[in-house]
Design a binder for these strands. Structure first.
Lengths: 199, 199
DNA sequence: AGCTATAGTTAGTACTAACTAACAGAAGTC
DNA sequence: GACTTCTGTTAGTTAGTACTAACTATAGCT
């Protein structure tokens, strides 16, 4: 791993754990196994380290393309795929997401970065529901509302488990919660006539 | 307002905004309109201020009693009531919830405090679903799973709106999202025969 | 009026964190 | 082998922060 990467990884880790002010350059240097001087030589200041980290280390994907590859036009499978993709994406970006909650508008570009995926997912779901409706596989509904609540459910699950309650509120496994949540929306959006067929 | 209260309010505010390390005793004193000395005379140290604030200023209610008073045994009304109660509770405790995400286990008693309501709500919902099931008003299902996803949906909505995206992802009003989310679960849990009756 | 309790003020201490300067050593390139 | 580039090391500067000490001022109570 290159030295820049070691520094940025260590920085994201420590800042997510202790907050921007709470994480010291000394700690970051130690965690990255480089000397403190090297941080400053590479990035100039602590603030710039964080900015570079957010910019380069937010794992980002093109939802639309991925979705188009994987879509099956079966509501349960597709929603599960979206939920799992979103969940995995948040896991990969866990530290940056935490920093976004903590530092929010104090780091330029951070909120935009973090809001990118939800925004993409919302649009993607709306379009998907509309197409499914044309095919007679999804009932008439307010799709943006449905999409938002679906995403909020995933988001709440992730945040709660990752940052505040862990396993301490429910012992149900992560995967079961996700499939259970998907089921609720599938049930809700599937037309009556298709339900009979499916059963 | 008493001087202790002014200090604790100011402290919660500043620490939620800037993090524990980021909020200085000087700022807290200014915001509380008292001298910095008064902070230390009243609470001894910065850490003790936060602990006192979390201890005294986490607005807490007895869910069970409130619920028993308000329950109507109509699924849609009851779930809406729970969702609104939960949402309002989180709004009141917004700052403490943010501090819990940020400082987590570094402040003793904090996570326990913040996890109390979700835990209560989970149990309450499970019992409610079971009773509704006995009355033939809710289908057989995994009630803990349903309860968790219902709560995660509310939680995700609150966190997203309050701390990271604001209104920037959807323009749908808060209340509409809540009622929409409730509808999904109502639809999902209502037995077929009751649906016909209701329509 | 005098006592008590409490808040404000000012000055100061001890410590820590971000950041700099200057030098020394190691590795690769020509 | 000299030159360049990069990293480590050490020592130090500067600024800010939690916290203390000692004195002053004020307001309520008797």
């Amino acid at each position: 791993m290159k030295i820049d990467d070691k520094i940025l990884n260590a920085a994201i880790d420590m800042i997510a754990k202790k907050g921007y002010k709470g994480a010291t350059t000394k700690e970051i240097a130690e965690k990255a196994s480089v000397s403190e001087m090297t941080l400053f030589r590479h990035f100039g200041s602590k603030k710039k380290i964080l900015e570079a980290a957010v910019d380069r280390y937010y794992y980002s994907i093109q939802m639309k393309e991925l979705f188009e590859q994987k879509v099956t036009w079966e509501l349960d499978k597709d929603l599960l795929m979206v939920a799992e993709t979103y969940h995995n994406l948040m896991k990969k970006n866990k530290n940056v997401i935490k920093i976004a909650i903590q530092e929010g508008s104090r780091v330029k570009g951070l909120l935009e970065q973090v809001n990118k995926h939800p925004r993409q997912l919302k649009e993607l779901l709306i379009n998907y529901f509309e197409e499914m409706n044309r095919r007679g596989l999804v009932v008439d509904s307010e799709y943006e509302l449905q999409a938002m609540n679906f995403l909020y459910m995933s988001y709440g699950h992730f945040i709660s488990r990752s940052f505040v309650s862990g396993e301490s509120i429910t012992s149900i496994a992560e995967d079961n919660i996700i499939t259970g949540g998907v089921k609720v929306f599938v049930e809700n959006l599937t037309p009556e006539r298709s339900k009979a067929v499916m059963q």
